[in-house]
Amino acid sequence: MKRILVIDDAATVRLYHREILEKAGYQVAEAINGLEALEKIEEAPFDLYLVDINMPKLDGYGFLRALRQREMPQAPAIMISTESSDSDRQAALVAGANLYILKPTRPEHLLPYVQSLLGEWQRT
């Protein structure tokens, strides 16, 4: 079973994404900020990261930069944000995100991205 780490300081957002992803058959873990996420990946790497931008202690950019500098198997990351400007999108991709999508997410939009990045997506 593929493992996904949901990183967001808002408990409701984490729970929402957990429910969507678990219903789709993924194993989900949560972190409340980038620092906690870095601790979790020390225990075991994940197959995909769902990352918010604005978080206390270590934001999504900081987490991705730290993740991408580590000598470990790398996994795709989707950055999820309320901010729609080009500079936010660009900063996310430069930091190491594979995809940048806007909140609020919808299951029918999020899951194909997740499946695609995990190499599971097939055109029907």
Binding site: T12, L15, Y16, T105
Partner: peptide, 11 residues
């Protein structure tokens, strides 16, 4: 028609 709002408001 916004699933997140439905979820968060119900919670």
């Amino acid at each position: 028609d916004e699933p997140y709002i439905q979820f968060a408001a119900d919670l």
